[in-house]
Amino acid sequence: MNLMANILLNVLVAFLVGSVLFGLQRKIIARIQMRPGPPIIQHLLHTLKFFIKETVIPKTAAMPFYIAITVILCSIWVAAVIVGPVSEGSLLILFAIFAIHKIVEHNAGSSSGSPYGKLSCVRAVFSAAAEVPLFAVLLIIYLQTGTMNLADIIAYQGTNGALLFSIPLAAMMFFVLILSKAYYYSPLNITMGKDLVSGFETEHFGMLRGFIMISESIAWYMLLWIFLTVFVGGLTPIGYLAGMIIITALVSLIDAVTPILNPNHSVMTQVTLAFVGIVGSVLMIFYL
């Protein structure tokens, strides 16, 4: 099979599974709230629906960026799929992609011209401090395994056991990162707070919103995939699926029982956890 078909296939699987996982997340939250909740495929249906809605570009939009940002968002996560499941490339690239995602959030917020988008952009800048653990995780993994390559990391775990057990604090930091990207009522996802209507995507609707939602689904799949790959090791597809469902369930449990923290607290929480994680991990690596 050629590379193109492989990429397309993986992107499609990432999108579909990611959407269903988001749907599952909503379903579990709903069940915790003692109500039946929407069907699992609801998020996917929402995504599809936005493709068949009218697309209007608001007057206030900063034009080239306004559309380009969705394209960038889509393409970086497709790139992530290529680096990840398709070619099992370097972890460094994946984290770079995640950093770009942050920039996209800024620009999507500010390019729309809506005050909510702007404030969401402010919050995105604000929470950039929380990206510190990302690089710390990278460093810790490198210190532990001596490599950045996903395939090598999988191989390392094959011989030495899952990293989840050897560097649990790094895993925790990464989990917090995942938590902050959860779609529904995540305590750390301050850019999407309902007080800002829909955050940075307030003015992106119709087709553009559809693309953003696709990217988000892929992003969710990819984050879970990275977590499982880096911290648990190479799994069978069934294993990946089970792992993703478990993490999604865990995340939705946390989402359901916490309010959204206000931006200051959210950033402080992430920074504190990062500090604990970094110091703890370094100590564990060198003294255990």
């Binding site: 709903a30 109500r35 039946p36 909740g37 929407p38 209507v197």
Partner: peptide, 22 residues
Amino acid sequence: LSPRYDLEQYGIYVTNNPREAD
């Protein structure tokens, strides 16, 4: 929206954002 009626189970989300409303 309350658990007894639960509008969301029919795929109806009350978002109050005119930009994404049907």
